[in-house]
């Protein structure tokens, strides 16, 4: 690794320059592409440090995280985005059923129980190595049989 260090330093410098160069619109790109790029960057843009997102009417910080206080229009938009598979900007019967099933499952998980077929909240009952332990094995954990004496 050390023998390549000078090249790597140069590379890093180039990448930095390249990023900087890429921030400016390319003059030879067609206008439509420029507009598309700008729109894409707007979509991908995350809040700059220190910048606070605009609060929609009705939002009140921590209360936003409570489901009852969400902007209904936003929620509808999210649901549409998630379940509108055919892209017609409306939910047909199948898509609506999928949405209702999703909401029901989330509700069941939230109340701390898991109905048949539902898995408990991710992260619950995990061992420190990230593997899910068998805490939810109904009827207790069946121990591994040792060798016969």
């Amino acid at each position: 690794m050390l023998r390549n260090l000078p090249i790597l330093c140069a590379l890093i410098a180039c990448i930095s320059f390249q990023s900087l160069a890429g921030a400016f619109p390319k003059d030879d790109d067609p206008p439509a592409k420029k507009r598309a790029d700008v729109e894409a960057r707007k979509r991908d843009r995350v809040a700059a440090p220190g910048e606070r997102p605009k609060r929609a009417e009705g939002q009140n910080g921590a209360g936003d995280r409570q489901r009852g206080n969400r902007d209904p229009a936003k929620m509808a938009s999210m649901m549409l985005q998630k379940f509108d598979k055919d892209g017609d900007e409306k939910l047909n019967v199948e898509e609506l059923s999928a949405m209702m099933t999703f909401m029901q499952e989330r509700r069941e998980q939230l109340v701390g129980g898991a109905g048949p077929g539902n898995r408990p909240r991710p992260g619950a009952n995990k061992s420190s190595d990230g593997k899910r332990v068998d805490d939810n094995e109904v009827g207790g954990v069946k121990p591994r049989r040792p060798p016969a004496e």
Partner: peptide, 17 residues
């Protein structure tokens, strides 16, 4: 655990079977 999962108590964050 029952079919409703492992409920070890309200304050219990480290449930076990």
């Amino acid at each position: 655990a029952s079919q409703f999962g492992n409920m070890g108590g309200v304050q219990n964050r480290n449930k076990s079977n």
